[in-house]
Simulated assay, not measured.
Amino acid sequence: MGDVLLEVCVDTPAGARIAAESGADRLELCASLNDGGLTPTGGLQRFAQDLGIPVYVMLRPRQGDFAYTEDEKTVILRDAREAGQNGAQGIVVGAITADLSLDTDFLARVLDEAGLPATLHRAFDTVQEPEAALEDAVKLGFERILTSGHAPRAEDGTDLIARLVELASGRISIMPGSGVTSENVQSILQKTGAREVHSSCSSILDCTSQSPLAHTLGFVPTSGIKETSADAVAAMKAVLRSEHRVVA
């Protein structure tokens, strides 16, 4: 077996650079991770291309659920095309229908428009029948599924993740994500058999040096803001290297 791959989700230039320079194997590039990750700007996409690791761009035009209007679908399709033009190595996308299944017709259009490898994001965790959705994802040509196993945190969804890994049988990668840290990643991998993981590897920055008005006006929360942590990325990679030695 090869090394376990670490994907780090980032939403700032600083976070992208920290993740790339601290050992991340791939970036999931977003805006507004506090909203679950939205489509990043073209400028951030082009910036990330210079960091030397693969960049997969989130395609999500708003926060909330994953049942999109025709106008929202138009935006996603345009963003899919522009992601390739901005140099992305892949895209991250998902969409569901009113009956809580994958919107396969639309997703096929997105993948065709982008012409890039694709990750099915945690829209997967909102479908009614995950095993059927896995088969749909395989047929559509997705490279991987990001999932917490239909639980708020991946460590609570390991039974389903393990089942998906078994059903996938190498046809598509199953990547645990949500609440994955250096403290629980080894247990998650051992319980599921997954070979790549997704994490923000973040910590809370002390923002007390900011202008008092930035806090008063609500631009900067007094509790601080999340940012990618070089120490967290390095700690995760250390555990993954240890896990590789155990399972290889």
Rank of each mutant, 00 (worst) to 15 (best):
R122I: 11
D3L: 15
K237L: 14
V55W: 12
A235N: 11
L120W: 11
T158R: 13
G84I: 15
Y68W: 03
A14G: 07
S199D: 05
A83W: 15
Y56S: 05
L205H: 07
S32V: 00
I53A: 04
G36P: 05
G177P: 10
I188E: 04
I161F: 06
S199W: 08
V165I: 09
P13N: 00
L120H: 09
D156V: 11
V127P: 04
A238W: 06
L5S: 14
T228I: 06
K73R: 05
D65T: 07
D79F: 09
D125A: 03
R60Q: 02
T208P: 00
D112M: 11
H150M: 14
A168I: 15
I225Q: 08
M1G: 10
G177K: 12
L59W: 12
I76Q: 05
A118R: 06
A108G: 07
V233C: 03
V93W: 06
N86H: 13
V246F: 09
A132Y: 15
A16Y: 04
Y68H: 01
D103I: 01
A67T: 00
I174Q: 08
A88M: 08
I76P: 03
R17T: 11
E72A: 00
A108N: 04
G157Y: 02
G42T: 00
L217Y: 08
S101Q: 08
R78C: 01
S187F: 05
N86I: 07
E113S: 00
L189K: 15
Q85F: 03
N86V: 05
Q210E: 07
A235Y: 10
D105P: 06
S223N: 15
A248R: 15
Y68G: 01
D65H: 07
L213P: 03
T39N: 03
V57R: 11
G177I: 12
D103V: 02
A238F: 06
Q190I: 15
C201S: 07
E135Q: 14
E70S: 00
G43N: 11
L27G: 02
R171W: 13
L29Q: 09
A31K: 11
D103S: 02
G115S: 05
E135G: 09
A235E: 10
L140W: 04
K226W: 03
D99P: 01
R122F: 12
K139L: 12
A31G: 09
E243I: 15
I225K: 13
D159E: 14
T119V: 06
S223P: 12
L146N: 10
Q89S: 04
P117S: 09
I225S: 10
D11N: 05
A123Q: 00
D136A: 15
I204L: 14
V233Y: 02
L160W: 07
G170S: 10
P221Q: 02
A118W: 10
T147G: 02
L107K: 10
V197R: 08
D99S: 03
I96M: 08
D206I: 09
T12D: 05
S187Y: 09
E72C: 01
T147C: 03
L51P: 12
V4H: 13
L51A: 03
Q89I: 05
V239C: 06
L33I: 04
R109Q: 11
T208C: 05
P221S: 03
I18C: 13
V57S: 10
E72P: 01
D159W: 15
G87E: 13
M236N: 08
G149T: 11
D156A: 14
A108M: 01
E113C: 00
D125S: 00
G149S: 11
V110K: 03
E227W: 14
V246P: 00
S22W: 08
D11T: 04
Q45A: 08
